[in-house]
C-alpha cells in the first residue's frame, strides 16, 4: 500500500506543479490545492500508516495501547486542511476580483497591465 501511496503522492505533486506553471489563474489555484493535498498525504504517510488503530484511548485505559496511529501528523494535517480552506477562499476571491478589474485570467497579461490598475 505504501508503494501505491508514494506513487499517488508523486502524481499529485507533478499535477500540482504542472497546473501552477500554466498561465491561467484558475489553473494556478487548482494546482495549489493539488499540491496541498499531496503534501498532506505525504505527511500522513511519513507518520507511518496503521490500520484500525485511531489515536483514541480506550474507555478502560488511561494511555494508548502499544500500536496506534501517530496523532502528531494527524493534528498537523488537520490544521493544514482548515488553513488551506482559508487560503483557497481568499485566493479564489482574489482571482475573481482580479478578473473583474483586468478582464483576463492570463497571468502574463496581468503582469503587463499592472500600471493601469
Amino acid at each position: 500500500m505504501e508503494l501505491l501511496l508514494v506513487i499517488i503522492i508523486g502524481l499529485l505533486y507533478a499535477a500540482g506543479i504542472y497546473m501552477m506553471l500554466r498561465r491561467s489563474l484558475v489553473k494556478l489555484i487548482i494546482g495549489l490545492i493539488l499540491l496541498g493535498n499531496g503534501a498532506n498525504l505525504l505527511i500522513f504517510l511519513l507518520g507511518r500508516i496503521v490500520k484500525g488503530k485511531p489515536p483514541i484511548i480506550d474507555d478502560a485505559s488511561y494511555v494508548l495501547a502499544e500500536i496506534y496511529a501517530d496523532p502528531v501528523p494527524q493534528a498537523l494535517i488537520l490544521t493544514a486542511i482548515v488553513i488551506s480552506f482559508g487560503l483557497q477562499a481568499f485566493a479564489i476571491i482574489l482571482i475573481k476580483r482580479a478578473y473583474k478589474v483586468v478582464k483576463t485570467d492570463d497571468l502574463d497579461e496581468m503582469n503587463a497591465t499592472d500600471e493601469d490598475l
Binding site: L3, V6, I7, I9, G10, L11, L12, Y13, A14, A15, G16, I17, Y18, L21, G38, L42, L45, L46
Partner: peptide, 15 residues
C-alpha cells in the same frame, strides 16, 4: 517534464 521529474523525485524521497 519538469513536473514529472519533480513528482518522481518526491516519490523517491518519500520511499
Amino acid at each position: 517534464m519538469l513536473a514529472l521529474i519533480f513528482g518522481g523525485l518526491i516519490s523517491l524521497l518519500t520511499l
